[in-house]
Amino acid sequence: MSTRLFELMLWAAGKTVLLSAISIAIGLAIGLLVCAAKLSPKKLLSIPATVYVSLFRGVPLLVQLLLIYNLLPALGILVPSEVAAIAGLALCTAAYQAENLRGGFNSVPRGLIEAADMVGMSPWQQLRRIRAPIAFRLTLPALVNEMILILKASSLISVVGVIELTRMAQNLSASTFRPLLFYSVAGGIYLAICWLVAGGGSLAERLMRTGSSR
């Protein structure tokens, strides 16, 4: 493989990382809202949130992507395919992240919340100083896991015409007749990115652990 082609693959890998990162960030924001709605005592909020989580976790991501990609123009919303792809990935990961966050918030020890009540913290202070930091620390491994899942799942957006790592490998193997080479290189790059993310995740966990023991 010439250097030029390898550079193209690396550029495409960068796009995979960028699109995945944006989707994860938007998904985290939506996931927080869905989680808050699901934990709410008001049925009007918790039931739609439950349906949202069940729906987006119950439908294959490929079908979600194909649907969003074709639904937006049908509704008169014309956006680049990258935007449709990010919307699809973000809506899907939001459902999984909402469940992770819910698990985290439910695992905050009751005693800590009672103690915060005793010293007279307002609900907002409790959330900001006790519940959110602890829930974040508890859900970090799940968040890293979700990042890796989305990095791999982002290969599916090649189907809606976004040029990322998988689509680039597809194009180059079609034009050079060397699918073994280009799909192996693409696989190797995915593997390297996933290992980097996993390594960064365990590093962050270790740093936070030393932070908490002080």
Partner: peptide, 23 residues
């Protein structure tokens, strides 16, 4: 296990389906 879990299913399918005939 690490290679299979660290790469997208779609890439594995492409390797098998389009790369397979070459071997």
């Amino acid at each position: 296990v690490e290679v299979i879990r660290g790469t997208p299913f779609l890439i594995q399918l492409f390797l098998l389906y389009f790369g397979g005939p070459f071997i």
